[in-house]
């Protein structure tokens, strides 16, 4: 599957920017996300470029000229050391885990293909990431870091979380987005307020 289709053809959550669905504080928070992309401060240049390549496979955006930025926000989170408030007992501290995990993926790529991860074909990249997810890895590169745990709880969770906090992602899934002071009046099955996304049915369109 490489093509992306959304049933919310006409919906852009940002169209509501100046409506009562958005208040000033929400506008400020989202504006910062849209405009102030943080600079690289934590990852090395190599790790940054590797993570760009990984993020492009975990959340591919082939249809976008300017993809939703993901890596700058991961770097920002690591720079601020803003963890989730816990770490699993079998994992090293968060920042160490990221260094270790990214370097291990780079090493896996070189070991398997003799090239760096960024140069692999999308298919090979996916295969490698799938192996990391299922712990099919060379333990010498990973040492005490559980590959699958790193993949799911740190890497994938971050990439996905950052992508789905972007308005472009809200629009493509038909999410109502910010809702204060105006919330919603119609709550039942198949009920939609005029300020919510309208869903189009592909099959019905084609028929």
């Amino acid at each position: 599957m490489s093509e992306f289709k959304t049933p919310f053809l006409t919906y852009d959550v940002l169209d509501k920017w100046d409506t009562p669905s958005w208040n000033d504080q929400t506008r400020a928070a989202v504006r910062q996300r849209l405009d102030d992309e943080p600079p690289r401060r934590f990852l090395s240049e190599e790790q940054w470029s590797l993570l760009e390549a990984i993020a492009a496979r975990l959340m591919p955006q082939p249809e976008r000229e300017e993809p939703v930025p993901i890596v700058p926000w991961i770097d920002d989170m690591l720079h601020r050391n803003a963890g989730p408030g816990y770490r699993y007992a079998d994992m090293p501290p968060m920042r160490e885990a990221w260094h270790q995990g990214l370097d291990a993926i780079a090493a896996e790529a070189r070991n398997r293909h003799g090239k760096c991860f960024e140069e692999l074909s999308p298919g090979d990249q996916d295969a490698l990431l799938g192996d990391v997810q299922h712990n099919r890895v060379e333990s010498r590169y990973w040492r005490d870091l559980p590959a699958g745990g790193f993949f799911l709880h740190l890497l994938l969770k971050q990439v996905v979380g950052i992508y789905y906090s972007h308005p472009a992602a809200w629009s493509e899934i038909g999410f109502g987005g910010p809702a204060s002071p105006r919330g919603y009046a119609r709550l039942g099955f198949d009920e939609r307020d005029p300020w919510e996304a309208e869903e189009f049915d592909f099959e019905a369109e084609h028929a």
Binding site: F4, R57, M59, V160, Y163, Y164, A197
Partner: peptide, 28 residues
């Protein structure tokens, strides 16, 4: 909400890539 829902699908179903993006369009 979307972030929580996407993370839940990623972590519990091991879903990622275009498959996850497409699945997310059924959120509603």
């Amino acid at each position: 909400l979307p972030v929580g829902w996407a993370e839940a699908q990623a972590i519990n179903r091991g879903m990622w890539g275009m498959k996850l993006r497409q699945e997310m369009t059924r959120y509603n």
